[in-house]
Amino acid sequence: MLDILLIATIAIIIGANDASNVFGSAVGSKMLKFKIAIIFFIIFIILGAVINAENPSKVYGNLILDYPDFKKIFLIIIPVVIVTIISLKLKIPSSISQSVIFSLVAFSIVEKLNVNYELFLELIYFWLATPLIAFILSIFFCWLINFIFKVLKLNVFQIDYQIRLSLIFFGCLAAFALGAHLTAAIVGIYSPFLSLELEFINLNLTIDDKKLYFLTSLLIGLGAFYFSQKIVRTIGSQISNIKPVPALAILLTQILILFSFSSNHTIGFLNTYLPFQIFAMPLSASHITFASIIGIASFNKFREVKPEHTIKILLSWVLIPISVFCCSFLLTSIYNF
């Protein structure tokens, strides 16, 4: 029961925040009605989760060689929920996947479980590399989109039409790619237990991994449906204030990076060309989005970037995992004590 509540809480929080990153620009500029955007978001996030979430979810099983007892998983999730809610209050985007993995490692240290530190280091390398890749790719995509419009000599109304269509189409693709990562980040930790026996209001539910991904992504969708509009209005999406062409470039960057680390076909294809091997892992969509925004801002020599806010977010990339690690370490120690 506690596990279900924790999963639901975290999924709803994520849904409320991440829907605006995908369709924020299209809805903000009134190119797409909010309810239609959310329906697209729910459909594609579920599809992405059911089709691809199992790939990045495998990281958890590979990271902890002797996997923890199912009944103690809540000790890993609670610190993540606490830190995510605090970061949300401070209006700082946080990465659920990173938080879960740092919490899992702290838990494993206390529980004296066998951790694959080589894989853990690789994950950290990729988490550091993906924002850098996003920074470069967003600049490239922004330049490419402008170049295409210039070559085609389209007028502003034609460009507006093409951008509207692209924001909807790529928004759906981004939701699909995001579905795998967000779901893997939230419930990937349960994936080694293929048949979960969950107790819910005196009912015994047997949930396999596909059902788990489906239900979690549905909760993410519901979080988006009920709360994201309010969040976009009160907090404001980082993307919704960005002009349509950069917004499209950011979406393309998200899609390319998220697909590259979730779809087995894409990973296989990239590994034949890359000098190093990549593998499926849950990535932080918020870090990719933020790095893309900074990439786009570099076009205007960072004039539109608020230094205080940027420093706060960059610091949070270090402080949030450390906080989760410490919180999880303490909680598990107290529980064992």
């Binding site: 500029s29 009134k30 190119m31 502003v156 109304f157 507006d160 002009k243 349509p244």
Partner: peptide, 11 residues
């Protein structure tokens, strides 16, 4: 029709 949001004011 909320067209050309970027340059609507200029147009």
């Amino acid at each position: 029709e909320t067209l050309i949001p970027e340059i609507r004011g200029d147009v």
